[in-house]
């Protein structure tokens, strides 16, 4: 990806001024993105001030709080603190489930669209991408309105006689799941679509000539061939799901914390514990970097 124009000679018409061209971006991202992240790392090792703020004294207290439970009064023998690990684990599970759900619906959709005739293809693609351009907040609010206890979904289901008591969806994990799935589905469809579009269908035909069934062809030939697209889609859904804030807050009732709401609470809510918030954000960043490394490794393997 980074090495531009593979197979073509590298053009260098602007090589002498290259650094000047790159400088504004380097500076902006460096000063307002890299430096703040470095500062956040520093803050995660500072001492929390009573009622918000930090004291510039080095401590591991934030990470200690993350891993160890020292009781209500802080003087008991440390035992493993499962709460935050559970929150992260739950977020990982939620994000994985959302990814899986997106994959199950997104793959057939992408495949279907990519196999239409070129003129109808762009129309289908347009239809799938439009909701993505609609403000995420508005989409989440719409979902909340749709599935609330006396919302349109339940009214329709009750009215049609399919159910007797309204479905209790709001404030549940299922609602959060649905929200995440709904937020990021297009991220799954687009890369898979791009991969299937490039796929050479004579490979499938060759498989059929060898008497393979269509599902065997899908599993053994198509899916391995479009795997980079699938992995890209999974990463694009997984990463934002992991740090999602709106879906848990609006659909989950903010009771079951996910990583995003846990971090938000440290800065904006009652907790007011900046070092712990910074440490939680660092841990999330580390998890994401691991996922990206995994992705990069899968990509290089693909190319070999």
């Amino acid at each position: 990806m980074a090495a531009a124009g593979s197979g073509r000679t590298v053009s260098n018409t602007f090589a002498p001024v290259r650094n000047w061209l790159l400088l504004p971006t380097w500076l902006t991202v460096g000063i307002f993105m890299l430096l703040p992240i470095a500062l956040m790392l520093v803050y995660s090792f500072l001492t929390k001030e009573f009622r918000g703020g930090v004291i510039w004294e080095f401590t591991l207290a934030a990470y200690d709080q993350f891993v160890f439970d020292r009781g209500l009064f802080g003087d008991e023998a440390p035992s493993i603190e499962w709460t935050y690990i559970t929150i992260y684990f739950r977020s990982l599970v939620q994000a994985s489930m959302a990814t899986l759900l997106c994959l199950l619906i997104g793959f057939p959709t992408a495949f279907f669209i990519a196999t239409r005739s070129p003129s109808t293809r762009s129309m289908w693609l347009f239809l799938v991408t439009i909701p993505y351009w609609v403000n995420l907040l508005i989409r989440t609010v719409s979902m909340k309105f749709l599935i609330r206890e006396n919302g349109p979904l339940n009214q329709a289901l009750l009215g049609s006689g399919l159910i007797d008591t309204p479905l209790q969806l709001i404030n549940t994990n299922i609602a959060v799941q649905l929200g995440l799935f709904y937020s990021y589905l297009p991220f799954m469809v687009l890369p898979i679509y791009a991969a299937v579009e490039r796929y050479n269908f004579s490979l499938s035909e060759a498989g059929a000539d060898l008497y393979a069934g269509r599902w065997t062809i899908l599993r053994r030939i198509v899916i391995p061939a479009v795997k980079p697209g699938i992995i890209a889609g999974c990463i694009l859904v997984f990463v934002p799901s992991l740090g999602a804030f709106l879906a848990p807050d609006l659909l989950g009732g903010a009771k079951t914390f996910m990583i995003g709401s846990l971090i938000e609470e440290q800065f904006k809510g009652n907790a007011g514990n900046w070092p712990f918030g910074a440490a939680s954000a660092m841990i999330l960043l580390t998890l994401v970097l691991i996922a990206l490394l995994f992705y990069a490794r899968a990509q290089t393997k693909e190319q070999v």
Binding site: S11, P36, V239, V288
Partner: peptide, 30 residues
């Protein structure tokens, strides 16, 4: 794209894409 081959091209690309890769909540905190 037009700057020829140079050292740190991958690094430079990485720098440009940092804001996409880092979760929004982390960017916000930082």
């Amino acid at each position: 794209v037009r700057g020829g081959a140079f050292n740190g091209k991958t690094l430079s690309f990485g720098l440009i894409s940092i804001p996409i890769m880092v979760p929004e909540i982390v960017t916000a905190v930082a």
